[in-house]
C-alpha cells in the first residue's frame, strides 16, 4: 500500500466473513474505497454503511458467488473504472464438516470452488488490470489446514493447499510487475465459522489477524502465519514422516 490511502480501492471477496469485516474496517478508516463482494446483499449493505461512517471514501456492494463465475466480470469492470491503486483481498471459503462430506461427496465440488477454483479464476481475470497499473496488493487467505492433509478436514485442507500453491505462482508472476501477493494462513479464529466450538488451541480474533495482515502488507511479506506460533507448529507437523503421520489424528 502507498500513503495516499484515499486513492486506494480494495475489492473484498467474501465480504460477509468475520475477518473480511474487520479488514474492511481497517482499510475504510484509512479512507480507501471498498468494493464489497459477496452473496448476502443485506449484510453487505450494512457493512458498507459501517465503512462509510468510519471514513471510507466510498463503499459499493456487488454480488459475488465463488461457484458462479458469471458474477465475476461485473466486479472486474467496476474495479477497472476506479482511478488509483487497485487491490484485492480474498476471504471466501467454506468448511463443511468432514463427516458431512463423507456422507455426501458432492459437497467436495462446492468446497473446492469456494476456497480455490472460484477465487483463482477471479484473480486470473483481475491480474491483467493490476499488471497494467504496475502496483497494488493481493491478500489471499488460506489456512494452516492447507499445510498437511489431516483426517479431520482434508477436503477443506486440499482446497486451501491448492489456493496457497496458486498464490505462490501468482506472486512469482505479478511480483515482477510491481504487484505484491500476500498469502495468509490463519489458525483457528473466533469467527462465525468457529461459533459454538468454544476455545480452540492458540485461538485468535479477527481484529488481531487484520493487524497482522496490515503489518505484513507494509513489510511486503510473502506468507503470514497468524498467530505466529502456527509457523513453528506447522513446520514440525510438515516434518512428521508420512508412515507415522498416517496413523495420527491431530
Amino acid at each position: 500500500m502507498t500513503d495516499t490511502n484515499t486513492n486506494q480501492t480494495w475489492i473484498i471477496l467474501g465480504a460477509s466473513s468475520t475477518i473480511a469485516k474487520a479488514f474492511t474496517r481497517s482499510v475504510a478508516e484509512k479512507g480507501a474505497h471498498v468494493i464489497l463482494a459477496g452473496r448476502r446483499m443485506d449484510d453487505l449493505k450494512a457493512t458498507a454503511d459501517d465503512a462509510k461512517a468510519r471514513g471510507a471514501s466510498d463503499a459499493t456492494t456487488v454480488i459475488f458467488d465463488a461457484r458462479v463465475p458469471d458474477t465475476f466480470q461485473t466486479i472486474i469492470d467496476l474495479a477497472n473504472t476506479q482511478a488509483g491503486t487497485l487491490n484485492c483481498a480474498v476471504f471466501v471459503g467454506s468448511m463443511p464438516a468432514q463427516d458431512a462430506i463423507d456422507a455426501d461427496p458432492t459437497l467436495v465440488d462446492g468446497t473446492i470452488a469456494d476456497s480455490f477454483t472460484g477465487p483463482a479464476r477471479f484473480l486470473q481475470m483481475l491480474a491483467p488490470s493490476l499488471i497494467e497499473r504496475g502496483q497494488g496488493s493481493i491478500v489471499g487467505v488460506g489456512s494452516v489446514a492447507g499445510d498437511r492433509g489431516r483426517v479431520g478436514n482434508y477436503v477443506y485442507g486440499a482446497a486451501k493447499a491448492g489456493f496457497a500453491t496458486y498464490l505462490s505462482g501468482l506472486r512469482n508472476a505479478l511480483g515482477r510487475h510491481g504487484v505484491h501477493v500476500l498469502t495468509v494462513k490463519p489458525g483457528p479464529v473466533d469467527t462465525a465459522m468457529t461459533q459454538g466450538l468454544g476455545k480452540q488451541p492458540f485461538m485468535t480474533t479477527a481484529d488481531a489477524v487484520v493487524q497482522d495482515i496490515d503489518k505484513a502488507l507494509q513489510k511486503k511479506r510473502n506468507t503470514l502465519y497468524t498467530k505466529w506460533i502456527w509457523w513453528p507448529v506447522m513446520t514440525i507437523i510438515k516434518l512428521i514422516p508420512e508412515p507415522i503421520f498416517k496413523k495420527m489424528s491431530i
Binding site: T18, A46, T47, D49, D50, A53
Partner: peptide, 16 residues
C-alpha cells in the same frame, strides 16, 4: 461483542 456495527452517522447533527 460481535454485534458491533456502525449503522448510521449524521455528520451534520452528530447523531450516531
Amino acid at each position: 461483542t460481535k454485534l458491533d456495527r456502525i449503522i448510521s452517522f449524521d455528520r451534520e447533527t452528530g447523531l450516531l
